[in-house]
Design a binder for these strands. Structure first.
Ligand code: SF4
Ligand code: SF4
Lengths: 153, 153
DNA sequence: TTATATTAGGATAAAAGAGTCCAAATAATC
DNA sequence: GATTATTTGGACTCTTTTATCCTAATATAA
């Protein structure tokens, strides 16, 4: 798998948050219900995102989490880096230790191209962009149901 | 990680085999030494490749494994499919169950492009091609040492 | 001030991936 | 026929990832 499960959940949750009114705190419980992710697990993941400054959290009634920056300023790569780290950008195809351009393996050239494509995609896609697309085309963030089900309260 | 460790080891071993005289059986022990991979682990992996018809094995003294087809006919994708299965081609970015074009998530379009690039790379690269490149430029298949160390007996 | 809703954080459990070990089967050589 | 070199296959262990649970801290509201 390209991204860990934690990372995927983090992305889904971030998209959910980006679809909400800016500044509003959303309880994790609500998100885990809507997104069909284990509440406790999602909590752990969002704690990471909070620790990394991507989310902001607030305790107590009316508490929850929200994006720390507008969704237009959050790239998918930000989430991926916060959860999976640089692995995706550094590790690669033949996974030899201490890799890079200096001492490449035979796959390096081809792999580097592919990896750059992945990187570019993650860096050039913002949360808001996907939310707008999802809303316009009623795409899904869960197993069943379209984007719209996320907005029923 | 894009490819499992088993898969990476399988690729490295297949490249090794493709660099050898066609038809020659190579003992797994020799490969595991050269490639610095645990003998027992590599054995398990190569058993999978043998079961999938990518390699052929022969027991006893002078035994070992060899490619079942010429290296020019073996794509990287063949190895990846044999070890990691279709996961890479079917699963994806947001990893929603039962995914596909019918009921996509907001990332689908962008992801599909990226995934196709990965797929194309793996499908259009043959073992022989990489071996020739590795030989010509003395690239490496192990932590230290160039391609050439693989050929000392 | 008490009850309630929430995140934070630690401990633990279950599942998957990676790696090791051993006995059995097979083939060549002595 | 006995010994040796090799693959096969199963059982097992270790590590990492995924998931669950419980308690504490914090903020609101009654
Ligand atoms: S040389 Fe390049 S492709 Fe090969 S393992 Fe290193 S970074 Fe990856
Ligand atoms: S819709 Fe496409 S990108 Fe999204 S999870 Fe499914 S296959 Fe992957």
């Amino acid at each position: 798998m390209l991204l860990s499960k934690s990372c995927v959940y983090g992305l889904r949750a971030s998209l959910y948050l980006a679809s909400k009114k800016e500044g509003e705190f959303i309880p994790i419980k609500r998100m885990s219900d809507k997104l069909e992710i284990s509440f406790h697990f999602l909590t752990k993941i969002l704690q990471q995102l909070t620790a990394q400054g991507i989310l902001e959290s607030f305790k107590g009634p009316n508490g929850g989490v929200r994006l720390n920056r507008p969704g237009t300023d959050v790239q998918l790569m930000d989430i991926v880096l916060a959860i999976d780290g640089e692995q995706l950008l550094t590790e690669c195809a033949l996974g030899l230790p201490g890799c890079g351009i200096k001492n490449p393996c035979p796959l390096h050239d081809k792999w580097a191209e592919t990896r750059d494509a992945i990187k570019a995609m993650l860096e050039h896609t913002t949360l808001t962009e996907l939310v707008e697309k999802g809303r316009a085309e009623n795409l899904r963030l869960t197993t069943d149901g379209g984007f719209d089900i996320l907005f029923e309260d």
